[in-house]
Design a protein around this nucleic acid. Structure first.
Length: 380
RNA sequence: GCGCCAUUGGUGAAGUGGUUAACACGCUGGUUUGUGGCACCAGUAUGCAAGAGUUCGAUCCUCUUAUGACGCC
C-alpha cells in the first residue's frame, strides 16, 4: 500500500503537527526521526537495538546499494527488509545527494539526461538518471522511494538554483512515469535554496504531480546557515497539502529538529547521531559532549542523567571514554545507541507538546539548557 | 679501575655556532546536518642531562660531574 498521513492535531501557536503515518509495516507517529542506514545498516546497530531505541522508519541509500551489493542481489534476497532483517518501514534516498557531491564538474557532468560521475569504489564512469534511480528503488522494494533530484547548496547562485529547480521538476516527472512498485510510495522533493519564489515554484509544481509525500531538500549541505534552512522550510510548507507527509532531508541537530517541527515538518533524517558517536561525541540535554575530554576520565555517571537508553542504563561516562580513547568499536556503538535514542525521544516529547499546544514553550525550555556551548559539560 | 660511545618533550626521535628546536605518536580542545573518503582543524619542549668555560652569540665547541651501554683488566 501507499503510505497515508493522518493529521490528528496541530499546535495552536505554531505549525507543529502531530499525526500518524499508515505504512506496510504498521502505524507510526509524527514528528519522527529516521536513523540513517545508508548501506542497509544503521552503522554498527542491530535491528533489536534500533527498535529498542524507538526507531520507526529508517533510511537506506540507493546509490550505495546500487554499487554494492547491487539492487538485483537485494531483490533476489527477498528485498531490502528481508535482506537486512528490518521489519519496519524503510525509505530509500534517491542518490541525488551523493551523485551531486561526486560530480566533479557540475556544469559538464550534470546533464538533462542525468548525472555522470565516477564510482567511489573503482573509479568506473557511471550515469545515474531519474529513471534508473526509481527502477533501482522499485527493486530494492523500500516503502518510500525518493525522486531523483539535483541537490545544490543554498549558496549556489540564483541562476544556478533556478535552472536546478526546473531540471529537478522534469526529473521528478520522469521518475514518476517509470515508478511501478504498487506497494511503494514515491515522494517529491522541493528545491530552491533560500529563495522564496524558487521554493514556491518548486513546491507548487511538485505538488501538482501528486506525490505520496513531499520533502524539502537542499537544506543540509555545504555549511549553509540555519537562517537559510528555516527560510527554505517557511517558503515551501504553505504549498504542501495538509494530508501529506512533510520530510526535511538531512536534518539534523536537536535545535533544527525543534525548529523544523515548529514550521510544520513531520519527519527528519540525519547522519549526525551515528557519525558524531563514532567520533566520540554525544547529544545531551545540556549540549553536545566530547568523550575525548579528560574531565570524563573517572566520571561514573551515565552519558545523560535520566536517559532511558540502553547505554545510559548500563554504562558510565568513564567506561565509554575509555572505549573511545582506545578506539574500541563498542564505544561508537554505545554512543550511537544513545544519540539515536536522544533524537527519537526528542520527537516523542515534541508529540506530547503538540497535543498540549506547548511546543514553543518546549523549545524555550530546551534552549535554556542546551544552548550554552561553553559550559556544555555537567561536571560543574 | 682504564678506554670508548651516548644523554634533545609524555614517548619514538630529526637537527643547527645566529631571529619562533623538524616530524610522528600521545595528550588537550574543537568541527561534523538526504554518510564516497570515517576523518578533519587547532594547541601542545622559555628549552636540548647538570654545572662551568670559549664566543658578539651555544642545544651544537672545550672541561668537570652525573647517569647509561659496550670493551679491557
Amino acid at each position: 500500500m501507499k503510505i497515508k498521513y493522518e493529521l490528528l492535531k496541530q499546535d495552536k501557536n505554531c505549525k507543529a503537527r502531530y499525526g500518524k503515518i499508515h505504512t506496510n509495516y504498521g502505524i507510526y507517529e509524527t514528528p519522527m526521526f529516521m536513523p540513517v542506514g545508508t548501506r542497509a545498516t544503521v552503522k554498527s546497530l542491530t535491528k533489536e537495538e534500533l527498535i529498542q531505541a524507538g526507531s520507526g522508519i529508517i533510511l537506506a541509500n540507493t546509490y550505495h546499494l546500487w554499487l554494492r551489493p547491487g539492487e538485483d542481489v537485494i531483490a533476489k534476497c527477498g528485498g531490502l527488509h528481508k535482506f537486512m532483517n528490518y521489519d519496519r518501514p524503510i525509505l530509500t534516498d534517491s542518490g541525488g545527494f551523493q551523485v551531486f557531491s561526486l560530480a566533479k564538474n557540475k556544469e559538464k557532468d550534470i546533464t538533462e539526461e542525468g548525472v555522470i560521475f565516477k564510482s567511489h569504489i573503482d573509479g568506473k564512469k557511471l550515469l545515474l538518471t531519474p529513471e534508473k534511480s526509481i527502477e533501482i528503488q522499485n527493486k530494492l522494494d523500500s516503502d518510500i522511494a525518493m525522486s531523483f533530484d539535483e541537490c545544490p547548496p543554498a549558496s549556489a547562485s540564483y541562476e544556478y538554483l533556478k535552472n536546478s529547480v526546473e531540471r529537478t521538476l522534469r526529473w521528478a516527472k520522469r521518475g514518476k512515469m517509470v515508478h511501478s512498485n504498487e506497494r511503494q510510495s514515491l515522494f517529491g522533493i522541493i528545491q530552491g535554496g533560500a529563495y522564496e519564489d524558487l521554493r514556491k515554484l518548486s513546491a507548487i509544481e511538485t505538488v501538482k504531480m501528486d506525490f505520496d509525500g513531499y520533502s524539502i531538500g537542499g537544506v543540509a549541505n555545504d555549511g549553509e546557515s540555519k537562517e537559510d534552512m528555516y527560510k527554505a522550510i517557511d517558503y515551501s510548507i504553505p504549498y504542501i497539502p495538509e494530508d501529506k507527509v512533510r520530510y526535511l532531508m538531512g536534518v539534523g541537530e536537536p535545535i533544527d529538529i525543534i525548529e523544523g517541527v515548529i514550521r510544520g515538518i513531520d519527519i527528519f533524517d540525519c547522519v549526525l547521531p551515528t557519525r558524531i558517536a563514532r567520533h566520540g561525541q554525544a547529544f545531551t540535554r545540556k549540549g553536545k559532549i566530547n568523550f575525548h575530554n579528560a574531565r570524563f576520565k573517572e566520571d561514573l555517571t551515565p552519558v545523560e542523567e535520566g536517559c532511558d537508553c540502553y547505554t545510559c542504563k548500563n554504562y558510565s561516562k568513564a567506561y565509554i571514554r575509555h572505549l573511545i580513547t582506545t578506539d574500541e568499536m563498542l564505544g561508537g556503538r554505545l554512543l550511537s545507541i544513545h544519540n539515536i535514542r536522544f533524537l527519537i525521544r526528542l520527537t516523542e516529547e515534541l508529540r506530547e507538546a503538540i497535543k498540549e499546544d506547548r511546543v514553543l514553550q518546549y523549545k524555550n525550555e530546551f534552549l535554556k539548557n542546551y544552548n550554552n556551548k561553553n559550559s556544555v559539560g555537567d561536571n560543574s
